[in-house]
Nucleic acid binder design. Structure first.
Lengths: 376, 376
DNA sequence: GGTAGTTTTTGAACCGTTTCACGATCAGGG
DNA sequence: CCCTGATCGTGAAACGGTTCAAAAACTACC
C-alpha cells in the first residue's frame, strides 16, 4: 500500500488532449526534464518503452511476450526486468488490431436478473474459462433495439462470437452479423434457419409434461397462467399444454383455461389466480399450470390466504424449478430445465471447426413432482 | 430471412474484379474449394474500402461517422450508401488504439449466480447504458487468482474502469491497476485506503439490527448461523450481532451462539439448526439469526419438519431479503440491502471528475420484520 | 475579377502491437 | 580459412481507424 504513495500525482495531472496534445506529441516528444525521476511517463508504458529500457528491439520484446523460447534467457531476463520496472501492460487493442485475435465472447440475454439466464451465463463462463476468454454480458430486457445495439457493440469490439437469446422472432441482425464473420449461437431458442447453431429446451414438451401430469392426477379443467404470446417460450408451453389435452382426449378449447398474467412475477400470479377463482363454479379449474415459478409463488400465496387447500382443492405446477421451489410451505412441482448445461453447450457450439455444419441442440425438460400437485 | 440468401453473393461480387475476387483472397488464406459455403474468407470491409467505394478520402468517411454535420449532406449520403452497401462495421480496436476512447467497463463479482450480485450488476448496467457503455462481467468464485486474471484481462482490453467485489483483503492489484490509469471502484466492500472509491452496505449495522430486534422480542440467547470468517461480510455481521448484545447488557460470549455452517445454502442451514437444536436445553437458543436467506430457508424447513413452531418456539431472521422471503410458509424477517442502488452508485463513482476525491459510500441496511420473528 | 473568409475535403501521421525478411553472430566441418 | 546452418535479434511494414494542418472549393463583397 505504501508503495503507491508515490503515484497519486499521476492521477492528478490529466492528459489535456485538447490544446497541447498535438504539440506535446510531435515537438517535445516526452519528458520535460525533471530531476525527480520516478514520476516520469504518465502515459502507460508501451512496448517501445520497454525495448528502450532493456536495450533491445521492439520485436524482441514482442517475442519475449509471445514466444519466450525464441529469445536467449539472458535477454529475456533483461526484458522481463524492464517490464516489471515500467509496470508494463500489453495494449489489447493494438494487439488485436495487428494480430486479429481477441479472446472475448459477447452474451445477450433477455433478463439479467432472471436466475435462469444467469445460471446459463455461469455455464458459459465455466466452459469459456479454460481458454481464458472474457465474457461480456448484457441484458436486453426483451427489447429488440437494445439487443441490436449490444450485438453491434460486441461486433465493433471484435468479439470472437456471440451467444444471444433473442427478444423476438426477428433475428435478421444475428444472421447478418454471422455473415460478416462473427460466430453466433442462439440461446434458449431453436434456430429457424439451418445455418445458425442453437441451444434450446423443448418448451412444447415442457408444457405437455406439466399438463399431462395434472391430467393423470385426475384434473379435467386446468388453468394456464401464461405470459404474452409475443414471447416464444410462452407460446410453446401453451402449445404443449394443449397437445397434452388432445392426447388425453380432452378439448383444449374448454378444458384449458388460458389466463394472461400482467407480469411474470408473484404479483402477476396473484392477479391471475384471482381471475381463475372468479370463474363460475361450473367452469372453475381444479388445477393451475404456471408459466414460471415466480408466478406460481404468487398463486400459492393467494390460495393460502383464501383458505384453499393445495393440492386438495387446487393443484399447482410451476416452471423452471428454481432453488426455493422445494422449500416452500407447499413444495412446488415444477418443470426443470438443464440451465447450466444449456450455457456450456452454447459455448461449445460457438467454437466448432469452421467446416462442421451448425448444430441445433434441443434439451428435454424434466418434471419434478412435489406436494403441490400430489394426487388428491 | 430470405434477404440474406443474397449476402454471400453480394460479398463475393462486391470485391473488385468481380469474377475472381474470392480467389484473390484465398491465395493467402487457403480455404480452397468451398461449394455452397462462399461465406468464408471475406475480409471485413474497412474504412478504406468505404472511401474508395464512395469516391472520397478516408478522413471524410471518418467524419461522416463521428462528426456528420461537418460534411455536406450530398457527400454524407454517398458515404452512407457505401457503408450500407459494403456492410461496414467499425473496427473498435483500431478506433480505440488511435482515439483512446473505448466505452466498456469490467465487473468482477464474487458469485455470478448469487442474486445479490446479479441485481447489483443490473444496477450498474442501468446506469451505464445511458452512455452506451458495454459491461463485461465475470465471477471470481471467491478466488483471488481468478480475480487477478480477469482484472488483468480487462486492463489489456482497455476498459474505462472496473468495479470489483474483492475476494480477499488483498487489493494491491486493484490499487496498482488504478495507478496505471484505470478507474476502479470496490463493490460491497468499504475501501481500506482513501485513494480508492467504494460502495458498500454496513454489515456491522445489519447484524446489529437483526440481533437488536430479536432481543427486543425478548430473546436472550440467540444462535448465529454464520459462514467462514475469511469472508468479510460474515465477520462484520458477527461483529454487529455481538455489539447488539453488548448494547443490551448481554454478554456475547454466552448469549450469542455462533455456529459455522458448512455452506451458505439451505443444506448448510439445515445442518446448522440441527446443531443448535442438539444443544442441552439449558443453553438452547430461542432465536436464530442466519447470515443469508438461503440458510434461513433450510432452517425454516427443518424446524417445520421437527414440529417446532416459528416464531413461538424459535424465531428466525435472515439476511438479503430475497424475492421469496415474504412468500414462504412463514414469511421471513430479513435484513434488506439496497442492491440495485449499490450498482448504480458504483457506476456513478467510476466516472466522477478526475479531481474530485474518491468517495466512500456506505449504505445503511434496513430490517424488514415479518412473521418469522413476531413477538411471542 | 480579385480578395478575404468560410466551409469541405484531403491525405499523411500516428496509436502500440505482431510479423517477417533479413543481418549478425557463432560453432563446427572440410 | 571459408563455408554452411542454426540461432538470435533487428527494424520496418502492416493492422484500421482518428486527427489535423493544409489544400480546395465556395461565398460574399468590393
Amino acid at each position: 500500500m505504501k508503495r503507491f504513495k508515490n503515484y497519486p500525482i499521476q492521477g492528478g495531472g490529466r492528459r489535456d488532449s485538447s490544446h497541447n496534445g498535438g504539440m506535446a506529441n510531435s515537438t517535445k516528444a516526452s519528458k520535460p526534464a525533471d530531476g525527480a525521476g520516478a514520476r516520469t511517463a504518465r502515459r502507460r508504458a508501451s512496448i517501445t518503452d520497454v525495448a528502450r529500457a532493456a536495450g533491445v528491439a521492439v520485436g524482441t520484446v514482442s517475442n519475449v511476450l509471445n514466444k519466450p523460447d525464441r529469445v536467449l534467457p539472458a535477454t529475456r531476463e533483461r526484458v522481463e526486468a524492464a517490464i516489471a520496472e515500467l509496470n508494463f501492460v500489453r495494449n489489447g487493442s493494438a494487439r488485436q488490431l495487428r494480430a486479429g485475435t481477441l479472446t472475448s465472447v459477447g452474451v445477450v440475454v433477455l433478463d439479467l436478473s432472471n436466475p435462469f439466464f444467469t445460471d446459463a451465463a455461469r455455464g458459459i463462463q465455466d466452459r469459456l474459462e479454460r481458454d481464458s476468454f472474457t465474457l461480456m454480458v448484457a441484458g436486453s430486457d426483451e427489447d429488440l433495439d437494445r439487443e441490436r445495439r449490444y450485438l453491434r457493440l460486441y461486433e465493433e469490439h471484435g468479439v470472437q462470437g456471440v451467444i444471444v437469446s433473442p427478444a423476438t422472432d426477428d433475428i435478421d441482425h444475428v444472421l447478418a452479423l454471422r455473415e460478416r464473420g462473427t460466430a453466433a449461437v442462439l440461446l434458449d431458442r431453436p434456430s429457424p434457419v439451418p445455418e445458425l447453431a442453437s441451444v434450446a429446451v423443448d418448451d412444447v414438451a415442457g408444457g405437455r409434461l406439466a399438463v399431462a401430469h395434472l391430467i393423470a392426477q385426475g384434473h379435467e379443467r386446468i388453468a394456464f397462467l401464461n405470459g404474452s404470446h409475443s414471447i416464444r417460450q410462452c407460446r410453446d408451453r401453451r402449445e404443449g399444454a394443449a397437445a397434452a389435452m388432445t392426447d388425453a382426449g380432452l378439448d383444449p378449447e374448454t378444458a384449458l383455461v388460458e389466463i394472461t398474467v400482467p407480469s411474470l412475477t408473484p404479483q402477476g400470479g396473484e392477479a391471475g389466480i384471482r381471475e381463475a377463482l372468479a370463474l363460475p363454479a361450473a367452469s372453475r379449474p381444479s388445477a393451475v399450470f404456471c408459466v414460471n415459478d415466480l408466478v406460481a409463488l404468487g398463486v400459492l400465496r393467494t390460495l393460502r390466504r383464501e383458505g384453499i387447500a393445495v393440492p386438495e382443492e387446487m393443484a399447482v405446477v410451476g416452471y423452471d424449478d428454481v432453488t426455493f421451489a422445494a422449500e416452500l410451505a407447499t413444495p412446488l412441482s415444477s418443470v426443470r430445465q438443464p440451465t447450466l448445461e444449456l450455457g456450456t453447450r452454447a459455448a461449445d457450439l460457438l467454437f466448432r471447426p469452421e467446416d462442421s455444419a451448425p448444430e441445433q441442440v434441443v434439451f428435454e425438460p424434466e418434471l419434478v413432482t412435489r406436494e403441490s400437485s400430489a394426487a388428491r
